[in-house]
Design a protein around this nucleic acid. Structure first.
Length: 473
DNA sequence: TGAAATGTTGGGGCG
DNA sequence: ACGCCCCAACATTTC
């Protein structure tokens, strides 16, 4: 039996570069890399098909980087680690921290379990610039507003340093009882994922090249371009960040070598929004399920499965909303500007509970992330802390004309509207019959009529929201 | 990281 | 030359 094994337990840190736990583990001679798929116990936060696709390929890439020595398992992490400690002479287990409530309690439990057996258990921060508990107000309570949080977090932030990929031991320990990646069945049974291969390259190398592309082609126009969904001015790093193909430390430090202007500042601010989401989830673990503001618990949400389904399928009759929802379905992602528009439409124009929207995004996104998803949906709903004010209702027509003026984005996902002139693209029902005919559009058949009226549904939302305001006082 | 309603200003047409 | 109206264009307020 091999002696003195250090286990590196990979979780959402599927990389070799800047991986503090891996670096620590590699100080030992005998290193066993493991990954445990344990989200069958995650209830409604079991990963969606798109996330599972990403995870498969990210794990595959990691396995290759580790000379095919990654041991994968499926099941309860505590029992699997306990079992490994039975079968091997394990000295220490290292992992980088995860911050979702169930991961925190799981880590605590495993740490106790290991310590009681005299095995060293070491968890390290590899994915946040600041630990959530280190940024607090003077009275020791957590910030609830982004701006002061951001100010304080930047002030106390440790200097960003990046660990190089450690030199791996010549022989990584493998476990003959480990599963193979394929038996985790992360890939879809139905063959819907062919396009994904053209869109994404999961894994560490893919993350680095995505970053390089962004820094050479996107960052220079980030501040303004990030709002135009047709442009390639965004980083597309979010799924890589979620699975830990790359860490924010690597991103920030590379960013600073390229430039330091308004665009960089703006991008860093977005990285900070991610941190703030993790921060909120840490301090308010019920964020994914419960309204942050209790006054919203009485909100008169509509129960309308037919509307919900039309929203999900991109059949609302509002082209920008429908383009976004189809982008989500086809690519596993959605441009941030359009995420706000589609979310606002579901919550405010359809008056459907933000949790149903969050669930759909969770199921479809390759970057589905409990912290970012929950915090952002509560932000749009107005139920969160430091949230969007109740009266802010996006108008999908105006948003389309403003941010997709030539319709390049909208037509990409709604080819049935490709011959409709810009003037009517975001309000096809206003187009004269001759123009519709010329564009080969039959409203109600080739493209739906709007399922609600903007003016009227906005008014309804304002009334509903004003009710919850009264409940507060 | 809205939008609509309301208010203000200023230029041009016109009697 | 002047007042009046109209209405963009912009600014402010309100939801």
């Amino acid at each position: 039996m091999t002696q003195n094994i250090s286990i590196i337990w990979f979780r959402q840190d599927l990389r070799l570069g800047h991986n503090p736990a891996l670096t620590a583990a590699c100080k030992a001679n005998n290193v066993m890399p493991i990954y445990i798929l344990d989200d069958d116990t995650a209830g409604q936060h079991r990963m969606g098909a798109a996330s599972r696709w990403w995870l498969h390929h990210s794990l595959k890439a990691l396995d290759v980087s580790l000379d095919n020595a990654l041991n994968v398992y499926c099941g309860d992490a505590a029992s699997i680690i306990a079992d490994l400690c039975q079968r091997f002479k394990v000295d220490a287990v290292y992992w980088n921290r995860c911050y979702e409530p169930r991961h925190i309690s799981q880590s605590k439990y495993i740490k106790q379990q290991l310590s009681s057996q005299g095995i060293k258990a070491s968890s390290i921060n590899g994915s946040l610039l600041n630990e959530p508990w280190s940024v607090l107000k003077k009275d020791g309570s957590p910030y609830k507003v982004f701006t002061p949080y951001h100010r304080e977090a930047s002030k106390i932030e440790p200097p960003v340093t990046v660990l190089p990929a450690p030199k791996l031991p010549t022989h990584l320990i493998s476990d003959s009882q480990a599963a193979s990646l394929d038996t985790l069945a992360l890939l879809p049974v139905i063959n819907w994922d062919t396009d994904f291969y053209n869109l994404w390259t999961p894994g560490e190398a893919g993350a680095l090249s995505t970053l390089t592309t962004f820094l050479s082609e996107g960052i220079n126009n980030y501040k303004d371009g990030r709002d135009i969904p047709a442009l390639k001015a965004i980083s597309r790093l979010s799924p890589h960040l979620h699975f830990g193909d790359i860490s924010p430390h690597q991103i920030i430090s590379t960013l600073l070598t390229v430039a330091d202007d308004q665009n960089c500042e703006h991008f860093k601010r977005e990285i900070r929004w991610r941190e703030f989401s993790y921060y909120l989830l840490f301090h308010f673990p019920s964020l994914p399920e419960k309204n942050f503001k209790a006054t919203f618990d009485q909100f008169p949400w509509e129960n309308n499965p037919a509307w919900l389904m039309k929203w999900q399928k991109g059949l609302t009759g509002y082209p920008l909303v429908d383009a976004g929802m189809r982008e989500l379905w086809q690519t596993g992602s959605m441009h941030n500007r359009v995420r706000m528009v589609t979310a606002s439409f579901l919550i405010k124009n359809l008056l459907i509970d933000w949790r149903l929207g969050a669930q759909w995004f969770w199921d479809c996104l390759v970057d589905a992330d409990l912290a970012s998803n929950s915090a952002s949906w509560q932000w749009v709903a107005g139920s969160g802390t430091d949230a969007s004010p109740y009266f802010r209702v996006f108008n999908p027509i105006i948003q389309g004309e403003k941010f997709d003026p030539h319709g390049d984005y909208t037509r990409r996902y709604l080819p049935e509207l490709s011959d409709l002139p810009d003037k009517y693209l975001f309000k096809p029902w206003e187009a004269p019959a001759a123009i519709l005919e010329q564009a080969n559009i039959t409203l109600g058949q080739t493209y739906p009529m709007p399922i609600v009226q903007i003016k009227e549904s906005r008014q309804r939302a304002l009334e509903a929201y004003s009710l919850t305001k009264e409940l507060k006082s």
